[in-house]
């Protein structure tokens, strides 16, 4: 197990008697990308703002690299780079001037380091232009650059993909993965976009109504299942009723998920779609029985639970609390 860089214990925020974030505890380890996932209003942004000190904590501690944020703000924040929501930079300054400005606020950021970061995010061509001429994607790159200047051990990004086009999202994702894997940076990303998180993160912390619902590795959450794991198995057959009897006799009534009639269309005979819960091992058996009973099997498909299914399951599909 790698070392935990961010340790959050009992983090709580109360505003006007309402608990916005309630008793949150989790760790982020080096080289790990942790996704903070939840519907709008779940308390993700409040949590992130508490970690970087923009919002005060009602209770709980945040430790970064073993340093308590409440005890020594400067030493804790020296290890953190962040983009909170949109990376708003000084529009009347050039990209380079912006970076120099922020570099002056940390110790030991040399001009060579600024140049290195500019190359890393691929802004060499436009760095001397005023930020007001930048596209959103370029501002995002500049935002990432300012967060990386002082070689942070933790990178915190709040809704980083907001307003980015698919190419921009992909680029950001690649950057994050590379930083985590090659430089061992711990990354915390918040988002309400499930598909995003699935591609970016090692572990997902699901939040709902200010509480942590679960922290699981992506692997556990949605990953490939073992031989005994129940899957959704869909059989496409020509006769629904006999097939159903055969299937339920084998897996039990309770494991029949649904039966859908599929009307015939051009070049495609009428068929029935039967979905049952079954293990991977049971599939050949089930198929053999159907074939033995003279039922035509047009297709067998297994569907793995997506993060979205899992997320809805965890949060009960609830709306904003």
């Amino acid at each position: 197990m790698k070392q935990a860089i961010v340790e959050i214990r009992g983090l709580t925020k109360e505003i006007g008697g309402k608990l916005i974030v309630e008793d949150l505890s989790f760790d982020v380890r080096e080289g790990e990308v942790l996704g903070l996932l939840g519907p709008n209003g779940a308390g993700k942004t409040t949590t992130i703002r508490m970690i970087v000190g923009l919002i005060s904590r009602t209770a709980g501690t945040v430790k970064i690299g073993g340093v308590d944020l409440g005890r020594d703000f400067e030493a804790a924040l020296a290890q953190v780079g962040a983009i909170v929501e949109n990376p708003e930079m000084y529009k009347f300054l050039t990209g380079w001037q912006n970076l120099v400005h922020f570099a002056r606020m940390s110790k030991g950021v040399s001009e060579a380091r600024i140049e290195e970061v500019v190359r890393l995010v691929g802004l060499e061509q436009r760095i001397k232009d005023k930020v007001k001429t930048y596209s959103l994607g370029m501002r995002q790159r500049l935002g990432l650059a300012q967060a990386l200047l002082h070689r942070p051990r933790v990178l915190i990004l709040d809704e980083p993909t907001n307003g980015l086009d698919p190419a921009g999202i992909r680029e950001l994702r690649d950057h994050l993965r590379r930083l985590a894997e090659q430089e061992g940076i711990a990354v915390i990303v918040s988002s309400h976009l499930l598909a995003e998180m699935e591609l970016m993160c090692d572990r997902i912390a699901v939040m709902q109504q200010g509480q942590l619902v679960s922290v699981t590795s992506l692997h556990e959450l949605v990953g490939p299942s073992g031989a005994e794991q129940l899957l959704d198995v869909q059989f496409e057959v020509d006769a629904a009723e006999p097939a159903r009897q055969i299937l339920t006799a084998y897996v039990g009534d309770a494991n029949l998920v649904r039966a859908v009639d599929r009307p015939s269309s051009s070049g495609h005979p009428h068929s029935e779609l039967l979905t049952v819960h079954a293990t991977r091992k049971q599939i050949p058996d089930l198929n053999a029985r159907l074939v033995q009973a003279g039922i035509a099997v047009y297709g067998i498909r297994t569907t793995v639970k997506t993060l979205e299914d899992k997320f809805l399951e965890l949060t009960g599909g609830g709306g904003i609390g």
Partner: peptide, 14 residues
């Protein structure tokens, strides 16, 4: 107004 206060306050500076 610019939103830059966020980037300003998350530096290792009180």
């Amino acid at each position: 107004a610019w939103g830059t206060i966020k980037l300003l306050l998350i530096r290792p500076v009180t």
